[in-house]
Amino acid sequence: MTKSIMIVGVGGQGSLLASTLLGKLLVTEGYDVKVSEVHGMSQRGGSVVTYVRYGDKVYAPIVEKGDADCIISFEKLEAARWVQYLKKGGVIITNTQQIDPMPVVIGATEYPSEILSELSEKVTVDALDALSLAEEAGSSKAVNIVLMGRLARQLDIPYEKWEDALRLVVKPKFIDINLKAFALGYNYSE
């Protein structure tokens, strides 16, 4: 049975490291894995998405509507943008951070401030302030790893394996910050 995970956010937020970590971990666990992302135009502050699929044998590299077991969103508006891709019974893990898109910045439209509560009425949402937790870990750039820590709760892979995979993808001088960020995400409770 193929599992589908989506990592969504705003171009430049560091989703690449998150998908690299996840890919390496899943390969090590012996799964067939496909990770798909789009480069180029969309990376310049636009909405970005990475698809991760794994199982005994994975065919399609992309995730479609109603197919994702879990969506990890780096920004709350992006969680709403991609919610149609969530499978019935799936979980959205989202950072509560707000990043105004250009139509909001220039006043053409408003940021829907109640978007998280509306989402929570429709699907299971696990929301956390990953930016604050990342800063607590020692770097605002570790938002991606905080969210991976949160994802670890959803997957049936031992905590130590995640730590091993982190050591493979993070430079040694940043590993302590990232291990802490991962733990903060994993252990977070409201």
Partner: peptide
């Protein structure tokens, strides 16, 4: 699949 009623501004 689920969807939200709120208009999600483009990015």
């Amino acid at each position: 699949f689920a969807s939200v009623d709120t208009n999600v501004p483009g990015r």
